[in-house]
Design a protein around this nucleic acid. Sequence first.
DNA 1: CGCCTCATTGACCTAGTTCAATTTGGGTGG
DNA 2: CCACCCAAATTGAACTAGGTCAATGAGGCG
Lengths: 258, 258
Amino acid sequence: MADGIGLARAAIEPALPEERVAKFIRTLRQRFSFSDEEQQQLISRMGGEAFFHKGDTLVDEGEWIEYSSLLFSGYACREKIDREGNRQIVEIQIPGDFVDLHSYPMEQLDHAITALTDCRIVKLYHKEIDDLIDKHPRFARLLWFSTIVDTSIHREWILNLGSRAGSQRMGHFLCEMYCRMEVVGLVEDGRYDLPLTQKDLGEALGFTPIHVNRTLKKLRSLGLADFRNQKVTIDDFDALADHCGFDASYLYLTPRKK
Amino acid sequence: MADGIGLARAAIEPALPEERVAKFIRTLRQRFSFSDEEQQQLISRMGGEAFFHKGDTLVDEGEWIEYSSLLFSGYACREKIDREGNRQIVEIQIPGDFVDLHSYPMEQLDHAITALTDCRIVKLYHKEIDDLIDKHPRFARLLWFSTIVDTSIHREWILNLGSRAGSQRMGHFLCEMYCRMEVVGLVEDGRYDLPLTQKDLGEALGFTPIHVNRTLKKLRSLGLADFRNQKVTIDDFDALADHCGFDASYLYLTPRKK
DNA sequence: CGCCTCATTGACCTAGTTCAATTTGGGTGG
DNA sequence: CCACCCAAATTGAACTAGGTCAATGAGGCG
């Protein structure tokens, strides 16, 4: 595991994991200067792949965790279940996301991570992170940053659930996914995949599936967004963003100004 | 700034900052073994106090941040304002909380931090954290952990706003505050201070102030909780926790089992 | 072809909002 | 100590966004 080639060898498909890992690194590079050598330092420490089927649990609540998983294909979500069995989706994970980097400091999660589609992940063992930080302390701040973006996304969801209603709450969610998908090259002609049912959408947004249906109908009739067959089409992103007061700065996707 | 004495000298009142800093450290020690020397390493790097009045902004959205603030007396909240001017409180900060340790990796926040009462903070400059991690890489994981607990709290709020209604949503919030106040010794005879108006409570829970009033009335009539004059009384915590399905594990306050 | 899951629509119901008025209590100046 | 003020709490009444219940369609698949 001296370099990225080890990863390619381990791949089941001909796809090069480096390309997917690069999605994650590209996001980081938008905020931090990052030498090629540092990039190699990180990639070389990643090793071991795993495959999950739709519906599988990638990480279970309370499970003892030794490595973090970088999602390089497929979609997953983080979810919490309350006493009555209500499911709340708290975040959607897309290719290029480290789905549980926060398990490095945390060691056990308070929520489960479930595959929304078949998924492939690359592992980064926590002992490798220890070693990486030991030798290159700068990585602490860098990897830490990437977990803190999730915190920011959570805060915006709190705002979304607490302060926005109906089509604005829904539209805001679709805007967020649009922006996140775009940086990893998964938006084409205003379209992207969103492998959720209307029931799932309801569980993310605090709506009943019936209300989700009506909300989507409204956005469609306003010409702002269309969700059909697990695909989202947004012809005029700015119009939708304006409709729901979406401002992408909480996603920390743009370079810092300083 | 070779030791904690520097802090005491800087204090405006005779209160010893170490005692308050210790609240933060005590919380960490519940999960990490922590030598006295390490504790000293951390405390010795903290320096500089600041005082804020009720209503002041401790940290503004988008502001460039060079140090993180440990709240050692008073209460604050993190809030986001949307385009329409609606305010959403996303977390309450109590004595012993690092209110913006996440500004170390993030450097600019997506939200503001506002004083709910007069507040006193101790600073930890980010360059000191750099140095600390450089010399003692173990601190990276440890401080990182403490920011990740906020992420977990945010997730539970998403669940609370998305899945719980009425008195259960309110009760859950009161349970959380009870538990967090208890570890820092601020609960006496089932009572603790909560310096919020009913309007503020509504802005935290996604309710109108009128509904907050009715929800509180209901909890009072059920004998589960009483909020009056910015003080919460919970005679039977277990009964309240049972009423709203509260499980404190997301607060990561108990020692790890492993 | 028939099954099964998901989407869609209608009718009705309720939790929570809105609007408006009244009360309470702490603080302040005379 | 009292009179006054003001912010916050409380209550009532009417209204509505969203939930509940129930039925119908529509697409995918063995």
